[in-house]
C-alpha cells in the first residue's frame, strides 16, 4: 500500500500560522464547551505507536481521542511491538495504518515519522523523534503562551537547559519566529548549545534577534517567557557527561527575584531538578497548566486531520 494524498504533521512548519491560530481557537472552544465535542469522533480509532516510553504525551493523545468519543489502540514501548522481532518501521506503519484512522508515533530515531508518513494511508502525527521535532508539544506551548499572555508576538523568550538535544526547543523556536518581534535568550552550557543549523537557517536567516549565554540570571528581568528543559539522560552516550551537566541549571525563587511579575514559566515536563519545587506555588509557574492544555490542542489537531466538522 502506498500513501495517498493525506495530511501529516511531522514538523511544526507543516502547519501555517493561520492553521495554528485556528487550532488555538478550537482548543479554547473545547476548554469552554467540553460536552459539545464529546462524541464528534465516535467510531474513529487513534493508534499510538510509542517506540520509546512516554507517559505524558501518550496519555494526553489517548485522553484527547477518548474525550472526542473515539477509541485508542497501540503500544507503549518497542519491546511490545514487532520491532523486537526485527520488523522495519515501514512495515509496522504499513500494517497499523490499516487498523486505525490516525496515528500518533514517537520514535527514538530522528526522521522516523517522515519514513512512516511515506508508508501510511492515514495521517501521521509526530509525537517526538529523538532530539529532532515534537510539534504537538509546540502547539501545547503556543496555546499556553496565547492563553497566559494574550498574544504570540512581541515576546522575549528565554529557553534554558539542553538546547542541543531538546526537540521541544527546536520546534518552539521554529514556530515562534513566524510571529513579529520575537527575541530569544538562549541559555545553556557550551556543550548543550543550540545546533548550528538552527542558528544559521532559522534565526540568522530570518533576522531573529538572539543572545547566547550560560548565565540564567543575566537576562531574567527582560523575559516574558522562561522555557526550562530537562537535560535528557537518554540523549547521552556517556553517563559521566550526563551527570556533569544534569544539574547545571536549577531555577529557584532566588533566581526569579528580578523577573517580571507576569513572567510565564514553562516546562514540557517531566521535571527532574531544573525547577525547584518551591517555584510550583509561584503564580508565574505555568507548567502544569501547560500539561493540561496538551490534551485540548491535541483534540483540536485530531479534529483537523480527520476533517471533522463540529
Amino acid at each position: 500500500m502506498k500513501a495517498k494524498n493525506i495530511r501529516n504533521i511531522i514538523d511544526i512548519k507543516d502547519l501555517s500560522v493561520l492553521e495554528i491560530d485556528n487550532l488555538i481557537k478550537v482548543a479554547n472552544d473545547i476548554i469552554d464547551n467540553r460536552e459539545k465535542y464529546s462524541h464528534v469522533c465516535d467510531g474513529k480509532i487513534l493508534a499510538t505507536l510509542f517506540f520509546e516510553p512516554s507517559t505524558r504525551t501518550r496519555l494526553s493523545f489517548e485522553s484527547a481521542m477518548l474525550r472526542l468519543g473515539g477509541k485508542v489502540l497501540g503500544f507503549s514501548e518497542a519491546s511490545s511491538s514487532s520491532t523486537s522481532k526485527g520488523e522495519t518501521l515501514s512495515d509496522t506503519v504499513c500494517v497499523v495504518s490499516g487498523y486505525a484512522d490516525i496515528i500518533a508515533m514517537r520514535h527514538p530515531k530522528e526522521g522516523a515519522p517522515m519514513v512512516a508518513s511515506k508508508k501510511s494511508i492515514v495521517p501521521i502525527i509526530n509525537a517526538g523523534d529523538g532530539g529532532h521535532y515534537h510539534p504537538t508539544q509546540t502547539l501545547t506551548d503556543l496555546l499556553t503562551i496565547s492563553r497566559k499572555k494574550g498574544r504570540l508576538d512581541n515576546l522575549t523568550i528565554g529557553v534554558c537547559g539542553d538546547l542541543k538535544f531538546g526537540r521541544t526547543i527546536h520546534s518552539l523556536i521554529t514556530a515562534m519566529i513566524r510571529y513579529p518581534n520575537i527575541k530569544f535568550i538562549l541559555i545553556s552550557p557550551d556543550e548543550l548549545k543550540l545546533p548550528e543549523y538552527i542558528i544559521t537557517e532559522v534565526l540568522k536567516k530570518n533576522n531573529i534577534e538572539y543572545v547566547e549565554t550560560n548565565n540564567i540570571e543575566e537576562y531574567m528581568d527582560e523575559l516574558d517567557i522562561l522555557y526550562m528543559t530537562r537535560v535528557q539522560k537518554e540523549r547521552f552516550f556517556s553517563e559521566e557527561e550526563y551527570i556533569r551537566l544534569k544539574d547545571y541549571y536549577i531555577l529557584d525563587k532566588d533566581k526569579l527575584r528580578n523577573a517580571k511579575k507576569d513572567l510565564c514559566i514553562l516546562h514540557p515536563l517531566p521535571r527532574v531538578n531544573e525547577i525547584h519545587i518551591d517555584v510550583d506555588d509561584d503564580p508565574r509557574a505555568c507548567y502544569f497548566e501547560q500539561a493540561y492544555n496538551g490534551v485540548y490542542i491535541r483534540m483540536a489537531l485530531i479534529l483537523m486531520l480527520l476533517e471533522v466538522e463540529v
Binding site: 515501514s90 527514538p108 530515531k109 530522528e110 522516523a112 519514513v115 529532532h132 543549523y197
Partner: peptide, 20 residues
C-alpha cells in the same frame, strides 16, 4: 553520520541529502 538518524537502523532506506 548521526547515530540517532532513522537511516542507522531502518533497512532498505535510501540515504538522501539536500545541498544546503
Amino acid at each position: 553520520n548521526n547515530p540517532r538518524c532513522i537511516t542507522s537502523i531502518e533497512r532498505g532506506l535510501d540515504q538522501v541529502f539536500q545541498l544546503v
